[in-house]
Amino acid sequence: MHTISEQPVRVPPAAQVREERPVCAPGHRLVRWVFPPAAAAVPEVRHLLRDVLRVWRVGPDVIDTLLLAVSELVSNAVTHAAPVTRRVRVAVGLDGVRVRLEVSDDHPFRPQVLVEAGEDAESGRGLFIIGRAVADADGDMCVLPLGLGKTIRVRVPAVA
């Protein structure tokens, strides 16, 4: 069991958790999880993220947006990056004003966010939907290079 602000947060046995509080930024919070690229990671990270955001008193609409985002991003990493990555890394931070969510993997493909899939597409709509939800929450989403892989970052105001 790992605690944040005196309230327990469930930790799955497969995940490694590290909480960091940067010395140079009082009041900032950061939690990181590392999961194997397996389907079981998706519901586990959703539960962990929900618990952390509630402890941090993030607004319920923001929590819903971030849970949608983390579900899709981790699911994408598990589905597409599993053959080339040993771990999926998830980080969530709060600077008092904005919540930052990052999902990283070692797959070299860097998708374009906010590109709508064709109306007949059977897949590929997830990032577009997340991008719209994040934009509706006055946030932003981007894809950043990370070594041979990538990080997809979502930032939204902590209160809707």
Rank of each mutant, 00 (worst) to 15 (best):
M1E: 03
H2D: 07
H2N: 13
T3C: 02
S5T: 13
S5V: 14
P8M: 01
V9N: 03
A15G: 09
A15N: 14
A15S: 14
Q16W: 11
V17I: 14
E19A: 14
E20Y: 15
R21C: 15
P22A: 13
V23L: 11
P26Q: 00
P26I: 00
P26M: 00
G27R: 09
H28S: 09
R29E: 13
R32W: 09
F35P: 03
P36T: 14
P37C: 11
P37L: 13
A39Q: 07
A40D: 13
V42Q: 05
R46Y: 09
H47Y: 06
L48Q: 12
L49M: 13
L49F: 07
R50H: 12
V55I: 01
V55T: 03
R57K: 08
R57V: 04
G59K: 04
G59Q: 00
P60M: 02
P60K: 01
V62E: 00
V62D: 01
D64V: 15
T65Y: 01
T65I: 00
L66M: 09
L68P: 02
A69L: 09
V70R: 03
V70I: 02
S71G: 10
E72L: 15
L73P: 06
L73G: 01
S75P: 05
N76H: 11
N76E: 12
A77W: 00
V78T: 08
H80Y: 13
A81K: 04
A82I: 01
V84Y: 03
V84H: 00
T85Y: 11
R86K: 08
R87H: 13
V90A: 15
A91E: 10
G93D: 08
L94C: 02
D95S: 07
D95K: 04
G96L: 07
R98A: 07
D105M: 07
P108R: 01
F109R: 07
P111G: 03
V113M: 02
L114F: 03
V115Q: 06
E116T: 11
A117V: 05
D120A: 10
D120R: 12
E122Y: 13
S123H: 05
F128N: 09
A133T: 07
A133V: 11
A135S: 04
D136G: 04
A137C: 10
A137I: 01
P145S: 12
L146H: 04
L146W: 13
G147H: 13
L148M: 07
I152W: 06
R153F: 13
R155K: 15
V159E: 03
V159H: 00
